[in-house]
Amino acid sequence: MERKSIGVSKKRKPSGAAVIRPDLTDKLFRALFEEWARTGYVGISLERVAACAGIGKAAIYRRWASKREFASDAIASIEIAMLDPTDHGSLKADARAFLQATRTVLRHPLVRRIIADLVAERLRSGELATVLDRAAMARRQFGHGLLDRAINRHELHENLDRELALDLLFSPLYMRMIIQGKNVTRAELDRQVIAIDAGIKACCFSA
């Protein structure tokens, strides 16, 4: 009897909650982003997201306990896409690679609308504070690695104001593309890289 029970469990597993398909998760993220950009966070309908992905709503709740957790993982998937830990040989080259990857992500119209709504929703209700904090933490942890490499190359002094340096790394691009809603050309990106490189190297605490 015990063996029979185990056998039934194994046969039912493919249609059960334990099977999480990565390709379906990606499809759900895309559907969520489309809905989010269209309605704003407060207007998101998980029923419509599921329908857009061509699945049942239950597939969402097998993966996430709430809309906030769903949104958090979706945003994290974007952060992971832009964070390349490759050592490019110099602070300036590392900064350029990071900004180029970030620029690619921020050029997507859905992403730009979602990020603006994400910040606004945090100010309205605070529900998405943990989502923004998690994304910012991932970006800053990546930045710490970038700064550590520059210190090991003797490009930066250990007496570095890391928080200011990390603010400088991302803020100019964010200001131009999200706050001002402008595109950034490659030439403009190169000028940002030069300014950021110089700014970070000036971020030492006074003796």
Rank of each mutant, 00 (worst) to 15 (best):
P14C: 10
F33I: 07
H157R: 14
E47K: 14
D94F: 01
N159R: 13
G16L: 02
R113V: 12
A195S: 10
E35H: 06
T25A: 09
L164N: 11
A120L: 09
H144R: 15
I44L: 03
K11S: 11
P172C: 10
N183I: 09
S72P: 02
D133Q: 15
L32K: 04
E158Q: 13
A207I: 08
T86Q: 09
T104Q: 15
Q192S: 15
V8E: 10
P109G: 07
E47Y: 11
S90G: 02
L24W: 06
L189Y: 02
D26L: 15
F33C: 10
S5Q: 12
N152F: 09
A116M: 10
A202K: 12
N159H: 11
P172M: 11
I20V: 13
I6W: 05
K13L: 13
Y174E: 14
D26H: 11
R122N: 14
L164E: 08
S5Y: 05
P22A: 12
A17Y: 08
K67D: 02
K10F: 06
L32T: 05
S9A: 13
D84Q: 11
S15P: 03
I196L: 07
L118P: 00
L169S: 02
A37Y: 04
H108G: 06
D117T: 02
D73S: 12
L99N: 00
D148N: 12
D117C: 00
L91H: 00
R153Q: 01
L46A: 03
G199N: 03
V42T: 13
R113D: 10
G43Q: 09
W36F: 08
I200G: 01
A116E: 05
A202T: 12
E158I: 12
S66P: 00
I178E: 00
L118C: 01
R38S: 07
D73T: 12
D117W: 02
E2C: 07
E158R: 14
A51H: 06
D197E: 11
R122G: 13
I80Q: 11
E69G: 08
I75H: 00
A136L: 12
P172R: 14
D197T: 09
L24S: 14
A187I: 10
R149Q: 04
V8H: 07
E47P: 01
K10E: 06
E69T: 07
L83A: 07
E155C: 01
I20R: 12
V111D: 01
R96G: 05
K10R: 13
R176Q: 15
G56N: 14
A136T: 14
G145I: 03
A18R: 12
E121W: 05
A135R: 08
K201P: 00
R107G: 06
M137T: 14
A71P: 01
Y61R: 10
R96Q: 09
A207N: 10
E155I: 04
D190V: 04
I75F: 02
S15A: 14
E155R: 05
Q100D: 12
E121A: 15
L173W: 00
A58C: 05
E158V: 13
G40A: 04
G126A: 03
Y174F: 14
K27S: 14
A53T: 06
P85Q: 13
R30I: 13
D73G: 09
H144A: 13
E188S: 06
Q141S: 14
E35G: 04
R38I: 05
Y174Q: 12
H144L: 15
F33W: 08
I115G: 03
Y174P: 01
A59I: 07
P22T: 11
S77P: 01
A120W: 03
S66Q: 04
L91A: 03
D133F: 07
P109V: 09
